[in-house]
């Protein structure tokens, strides 16, 4: 079928880019590793007094989620380059489906994130992180939805704004509140009620909550259910919106 074939072709194009520059994967590993080494020790005392869960069981699942979020949000810069070089316009003048023009790069980003998440999990094991294997696999599904959503969002922003200077404030403006309200750095249970309420509007929060119980080995949990309930429609909506953005962009 033409659609699937075109998605495959455009996916391969972007994948070749990553394979030619594997340094990107290493750079993307840097952020979570720095968090692991320079931030997680801060949590030691906090958790040591408060409970029996190890710091890494609390912290690493959230980091896995945030890696997906970060990697997706910044893809807009890459597509601005391609708009400027006329690549997107050239594809739009071919019979290729507009959805494939979006899906190719998004699937490449998803692949990148899954590789990074796997590598980072392996890096965390010697530090003492012991995720439940089945739970971890289910988490990969949630992470995939998250990267598909954020990458599509990032591309749509790039396609609509077309300039780095206009993209930056929005990306930064979205980035920080989502991170702070995700409960990655500190569990949201510590937050006052109003902050907790606010967190419930954050899709990343549900993913982080689900990630923790999944890595602990609980799959049939309400938190996992909420994550799917929130992420599935959100993914569909954002992908549809981003496809529309592809439909109308000109260089």
């Amino acid at each position: 079928m033409k659609l699937l074939r075109d998605i495959g072709l455009l996916y391969k194009r972007k994948l070749m880019e990553t394979l030619r520059n594997p340094i990107y994967i290493v750079m993307s590993m840097l952020t979570p590793v720095l968090y692991l080494i320079l931030f997680s020790p801060l949590l030691n005392k906090l958790v040591g007094t408060g409970g029996t869960r190890s710091v890494l069981d609390l912290f690493v699942p959230g980091l896995l989620v945030i890696v997906a979020f970060f990697n997706g949000l910044f893809v807009g810069y890459g597509i601005i380059d391609e708009i400027r070089n006329g690549v997107i316009e050239r594809f739009r003048a071919t019979p290729t489906s507009r959805f494939a023009i979006l899906a190719g790069p998004v699937l490449r980003d998803t692949t990148n994130v899954l590789v990074i998440v796997t590598l980072f999990t392996l890096v965390s094991v010697p530090f003492g992180f012991r995720p439940d294997p089945v739970g971890w696999l289910v988490l990969l599904v949630i992470i995939s939805m998250l990267i598909i959503t954020t990458a599509s969002f990032g591309y749509a922003l790039g396609l609509i704004l077309k300039e780095e200077d206009r993209l930056s404030p929005i990306v930064q403006g979205v980035n920080l509140p989502i991170l702070l309200l995700s409960g990655v750095l500190l569990p949201m249970e510590l937050a006052p009620t109003w902050l907790q309420v606010l967190a419930h509007f954050n899709p990343v929060y549900y993913s982080v909550e689900a990630a923790r119980v999944l890595c602990a080995g609980t799959i049939w949990d309400a938190k996992v259910g909420y994550a799917f309930l929130f992420m599935v429609p959100l993914t569909v909506l954002v992908v549809a919106w981003a496809t529309r953005a592809v439909r109308s962009v000109v260089a």
Binding site: R13, M16, E17, R20, N21, D81, E82, R84, N85, G86, V87, E89, R90, A93, T94, P95, A251
Partner: peptide, 18 residues
């Protein structure tokens, strides 16, 4: 229409990393 035309925009269109 797309099947029957070729288009080279002002910006070109070649994918630089390939």
């Amino acid at each position: 229409v797309r099947r029957n035309i070729g288009y080279v925009g002002q910006a070109g269109g070649a994918d630089r990393p390939a």
